[in-house]
Every structure is written in structure tokens, then in C-alpha cells.
Write a protein that binds this DNA or RNA. Structure first.
Lengths: 384, 384
DNA sequence: TCCTGTTCGTAAGGTGTACTAACAAACATG
DNA sequence: CATGTTTGTTAGTACACCTTACGAACAGGA
């Protein structure tokens, strides 16, 4: 090895130099990109021939054959037989990701009463489901997660690509949980510990960020969206230009404790008045509805929707989003609340530009579990 | 040419297939990335030896020599002589971007009274300055821009890399001005027309987006920031994870007409009450200060700062920004206004996470002109 | 039935990119 | 003056994708 190279410990110009973190690109990494491109195409479009893949990706048939050969050798892709063709020419051999030959384990730690887990197909379908009561204390929580993951792994008869975990709180991109008050974790290296314990790739992310991945991959897939999760608390995940947003403190989407409006509001657990969470969380909403006459329930929901609109209007305008997706109890969110939010958003943003922003309920069930599966797909296959 | 390849007009699976727009990567494109990496390093760190570049970028000295050879042949890079060294070994030959051998033309169309233009060095220094009164009518405006650009081009004794233009309004990434009420342009292909007229690369972008590029490249360069331009109107540009945000309608940053607060506010030109622009624009602020006793001027500024804080709090939380930079009249913005905005932002976001967000005035003069220069640098050299 | 044209998948060879290995040049130091 | 260090270049290798060419397998017409 040449001592000149790879030795970044000495810097002639000192450590204070300000340079963008940027990496060289080797041909090998370009190969990785093209591998992901092929798998991505197969994943979304389904089984097709090598020639189809060539047309879809722009790579030549020769290169596709080479890549597919690698995938077949690795067991990632299988030949699915010959397609009965209509036109002339040699009939194509269909190839596809070996969807039946792999599984993913997804785990959702954001539920109020239990840790939920599932064994999923590569298409995000839940095949088996298990849950454990939420324990108290950080160590017990970790043990419960590990046991749940091992149980789900034991259910699979085929190889598992990896384990995805959606956790409440602030999670670093390397899967270290910086803070999760609900789970009593601080700077807890969940991803590293779990990966070592299970001997498999593990991905840990914030639950709202996992959810937005599920909506993006399995839903309508607009390249700019905000997904708002409404449960005990309120959190959000963002995708802009097809990329998940992380933020400088890994806290992007933490909008639950932003104060909404300039006329006060209900007291929040954090001590402030008028936080979005105090207006909109399912617990607060149900409590307030229980307090008022049944005829006024709609007014409570309309008020919550209006406040949601007030809170997201600056975000929609700043990011120029095309879609807001809500994930939470449909009986609360659908109808009055979304209508009020839409009206408010339109009334509070620039006319003629942001008029077509859609606010809607998610179509995804088990959104965090499926999002956890997308995390694994994205990390292991480059698919999203 | 093989008829199988590159023919994207026929799709076996029909046009309705939903696939991410993603491109293959060839070795040639990897080369382009590494070219940009080398220039980026030289641009920010200044003259250095090939061996230094090798250590900085991680590429080998051989590859660096090859790349630098290309650059020297193209006239982009020059050898700057031998550095008198301290230690043993052969003294290094310093190489640097030929900063004196190239110029950039930047043009700012956002001023209220005039189109401003400058001839700039590659480091963003203004060398010559010209301006023309803002004409009325879209055709006259184009003619004025073209004449201003040609005059500036004639002032340069060395090759000009390209022309950057910052324009008010909504501008598509290909430099087509979708709408600019101030300049009376709708779907006006300014970049294409100007490029054809001048025979040079031309880049047209929104003025606030140009400004945030200047702040990012020549300023402190935090990878997440919001730059708010406060003049006749209010607009913003965003950088997240070192990338400029564009938005689904190319309208990211258009926060001037977001309603702030839930207690009304001054009537805005757009017809709504309480738009950020109505609270914060320089014209509105000066008018309101002129109306009140001199002792109450501070209260007006504090109110405006508070409203700014209210407006950006959800954006800061959603994107997890680290910095808000203001560009506008310092006599209005500095002091009371920024202090009130900072207080408000802290009071309205999650404690313990967003406490260290900085709101400050830009340090950049001629921010749009310099941003236009960055656009050219980024497009022609891959430097930002 | 046989020939032609089409499409699929593969084989062989070429180009471009970055790498390792090796070396001459130019310096400081003992 | 010998030795070791650093720089920049030359020569040869590994890898990825390309173009060109070809056999296999089919439909359809003479």
C-alpha cells in the first residue's frame, strides 16, 4: 500500500479547513447505482425480460445480462419462465426479484400499549403478526424488541433481508436513538446492538420517517410530501424531491410542539399553550369531544383541522409541497377535520400557486411496519 | 447504432407505468463527478499541489495528475509556481483554478428601480458595475437585460464563463420564467433567448434562490439554512442537506403571502389580511414607522420580528434548520427585529432541540449578483 | 416446407476510468 | 556525500460499460 494515499490524519492546511463532505466516485460505485436501478425497475414494474430492462433503464442488453447474472448467482433474482409472446422473435425469459424467497421483519415501537412486529413480503404485505406489551424502562424495552425480532425471524422459512424498526423520538441516520422519552432511551445504539444480537442488517429510524417511506413507496409516490402522524402525539416525516429529509439535528418533522396561532390555546404537556399536539393529538381530541355536547363534536374537529392548516401553511409554501398525508384514527381525521384543514390552507397561502395541494388520509395500513420494510429494501437492495 | 437501444418511444408496458425518474450512471459520469470534486477542493481551499489534492479528495496522485492535465489543457487550471517548502522532498508545484483568467457576469432583476449587473471574479468579487433603469413591459425588460449583459461582457478582457440572472418570480430549473408580475413575464424563456443572443451559457433563477447560494458558498456554509429576502416583497430560498430546494411547482420559498397568526393583520396587496409581506416588507415597515410617533418605531419592528418568528417556527421545526439568514435593509432588520424574531422562535418551538437556531443578517453584499455568479460556477465547473 | 425477418440473449473485443507498482527529480539532513 | 522523503510521471492492471456480431427461437409469407 502506498503511504501517500488514504492517510487523512495529516492535513497540510490544518483541520480548520471548511470543505463540503464529498466523496470520490469509483467505477465500482457506479456499478452499485446501476444494480439498484435494475432492482428498482423490477421491484415496481414486476417481472420482465432482460430486453425490457434494457429499454427501461437505458443500459444495453449486454450489461443487463451481466447484472442479472450477478443477481441470480446471489439468489436475489430468479428466472420466471418464458412469456408467451404475440409478435415475432424469440420469446423472452422473464426475470424478477425472488419475492417468495425473501422476507423482511418490521417492528413498530410507536404504539401506545404494545410493540408491534410483523414478518413481511418484499411487497410490504404482512404475512405474520406478533406483539408484546410495552415494558417500562429502557433495558426492558430493548429486551422486548430483541425477543420480538427473534420470534419473527424464527417464523420465516426463507432468508430474511433485514430488520427495520420505527421508533418514536429522535434517531440518528446510523440508528442511534438520540432521545426517546417514551422508551426511556438516550443515546441508545439500538441499531448496532440489535444487529449484533441478530446477526442481520438492522435499520432503526423515526416512526414518522418510516411512515412517509411507506406512503411514498407503496402509495401514490408524489416526489414532495409531508406525512403527519396523529396519535398520542403529533409528528411528521418529509420527502422532498424524492429524498427523505433528515435535518441538521436529525429532528426534521418534529412539529408536534410548534405553537399554532397567536391567540393562545390549550395547555400542552410540554408547558406551552397552543402546541399543534395540544390541538390535534388523538388523545386531546377525544378528551375534548367527550367534554362537549355531541352536537358540538364537529366544531371541535373543525377547529383542529383549522389549526392543522395554520401550522402547515408556512411549510407547504416554503417547500412547495404537493401533498399532505395524514396517518391516524380515520373517525377523527376524515371528513370535517380534513375539509377544514384544506379550506384553511388555501385561504392562508398564495392564490393561484398552492390551490391544488391535496390533504388526504393515508391509504396504507400498518404504515410504520411497512415503512420499516421499505427501510430494509432501500438499504439492502437500493429499492425505494 | 443498435436499434434496440435508446429507443424510448415504445414501451411494452404502456406509458402509465409509475417509475422514479432515475438515470443510469456511466464511468464517464463518474469522471465528471471527480472533475467537480477536484475543482471544488481547489475553489474553496485555494492553490495547492497535486499531492495535496490527492490527500484531500482520496483520489490517487496519478488520477489527480490526469485530471489536472485535462484542466490545464482546457485553460481552467494553471500552475502557479513552486511552493518554498519546509521539510524534505521535492518541492511541490502549486496549481489553482485560473481565477484571473476567467470572469462571470451576474445580473439582478429584483431591484425596485433598476436592473443591476456586474462583472465578477470567480471568487465573487465585483470588478465592474453597471445598471439600467427598470423599463416597463416584458419586451422592453428583455431588451434591457440583453443590453446590460452585452455591455458587461464587453468590459471583460478575459473569457467569461457564463451569465447568471436572478429574477423575481417563479422560475423553472431550465430558466423559463413561469410568472413574474413585476417584469410582466409569463412563461418567458429568458435563459434560452439570452443564451442564444449572447452565445454563452446563461443561468436564470429566482432571486432568493440565487441569494441563498451566495450565502452558502461565500458565507458560513451551514448545510441547512433558510434565507429570507426582505425588500418590496418577502421571499425566501432554502438549502437543505447542502442542496437547494426547488419544490414541486418550482415555487419553494414563496412565503411572502402566507398568513401569519390567527388574529388578523394589515391588509396585503394580494387581498388577504396578515400576510408575512404585509407585516415585514421594507415598504410596509417604513410606511408604518412613518405613521407612528418616533418612540413607537421599535414596537413596530418588534411586532414585525415576532411575526417573522411565528411564520418560520413551523418551517424550522419541519426542516430542522440550523440557521435563518435575513437579507434586507440593516437599519430595519438588525437589532430589535432580529431579537424579537429569535425570542419568538425559541418560545414557539420544542425546547431543548431548536434552542440554538441562529437568526442573523447576511454578511454578503450584492447577494443576488454573487449568487448569480455561484449559479454559473456550479453549472460550468461543478463548484458550489 | 422453406425462407425471411424479428426479437432475445450471449460472446468477443474495444474504450475509458481509476488503480497499483515503480521510478526519476529535487530537496533536507546527518 | 550518502540517505531518506516528497513530488509528479510512466507503465501496466482491473473493472464497467460499450459496440459489434452471432446463434436460438419464433411468426408469417412464398
Amino acid at each position: 500500500m502506498n503511504a501517500d494515499n488514504g492517510d487523512s490524519s495529516r492535513h497540510r492546511f490544518g483541520p480548520a479547513r471548511r470543505l463540503r463532505a464529498q466523496a470520490k466516485v469509483l467505477p465500482e460505485q457506479a456499478r452499485g447505482h446501476n444494480r439498484a436501478l435494475v432492482l428498482q425497475t423490477l421491484f415496481h414494474a414486476g417481472a420482465m425480460s432482460r430486453a425490457d430492462l434494457s429499454r427501461e433503464t437505458g443500459l444495453t442488453r449486454v450489461t443487463i445480462s451481466d447484472l442479472i447474472g450477478e443477481f441470480i448467482a446471489d439468489g436475489i433474482v430468479v428466472e420466471k419462465g418464458i412469456r408467451s409472446t404475440t409478435g415475432p422473435g424469440k420469446p423472452p425469459i422473464l426475470v424478477d426479484i425472488d419475492r417468495d424467497g425473501h422476507r423482511i421483519v418490521g417492528i413498530d415501537l410507536s404504539g401506545p400499549g404494545a410493540f408491534e412486529g410483523a414478518l413481511l413480503s418484499l411487497d410490504g404485505e404482512v404475512l405474520e403478526r406478533r406483539e408484546v406489551p410495552r415494558p417500562s424502562g429502557g433495558t426492558a424495552a430493548y429486551e422486548a424488541v430483541r425477543a420480538l425480532a427473534e420470534e419473527l425471524l424464527s417464523l420465516s422459512t426463507v432468508p430474511v433481508l433485514g430488520v427495520g424498526v420505527g421508533a418514536p423520538g429522535i434517531v440518528r441516520p446510523d440508528g442511534l436513538v438520540l432521545s426517546s422519552p417514551n422508551l426511556d432511551w438516550n443515546d441508545f445504539p439500538l441499531e448496532r446492538l440489535l444487529s449484533a444480537a441478530l446477526g442481520l442488517p438492522v435499520l432503526v429510524r423515526n416512526d414518522a420517517n418510516a411512515a412517509v417511506l411507506a406512503e411514498y413507496t407503496f402509495g401514490q409516490a408524489r416526489p414532495d410530501m409531508l406525512l403527519v402522524r396523529i396519535g398520542r402525539g403529533v409528528g411528521a416525516g418529509l420527502i422532498s424531491d424524492s429524498q427523505p429529509l433528515v435535518g441538521s439535528r436529525y429532528a426534521a418533522g418534529e412539529i408536534g410542539h410548534v405553537v399554532v396561532g397567536t391567540d393562545g390555546g390549550p395547555r400542552c404537556a410540554c408547558g406551552k399553550d397552543g402546541c399543534l399536539e395540544a390541538w390535534l393529538s388523538a388523545s386531546h381530541l377525544r378528551a375534548r369531544i367527550a367534554e362537549v355536547p355531541e352536537a358540538d363534536a364537529d366544531a371541535v374537529l373543525a377547529e383542529a383541522g383549522t389549526r392543522l392548516g395554520v401550522a402547515i401553511a408556512p411549510i407547504v409554501a416554503a417547500l412547495d409541497l404537493s401533498e399532505i398525508v395524514l396517518s391516524g384514527p380515520a373517525d377523527l381525521l376524515d371528513g370535517t377535520l380534513i375539509a377544514a384543514a384544506t379550506r384553511t390552507l388555501t385561504a392562508r397561502t398564495l392564490e393561484g400557486v398552492f390551490d391544488d395541494v391535496v390533504i388526504r388520509l393515508t391509504t396504507q395500513d400498518d404504515i410504520v411496519l411497512r415503512g420499516a420494510a421499505v427501510m430494509v429494501l432501500s438499504s439492502q437492495l437500493g429499492v425505494s
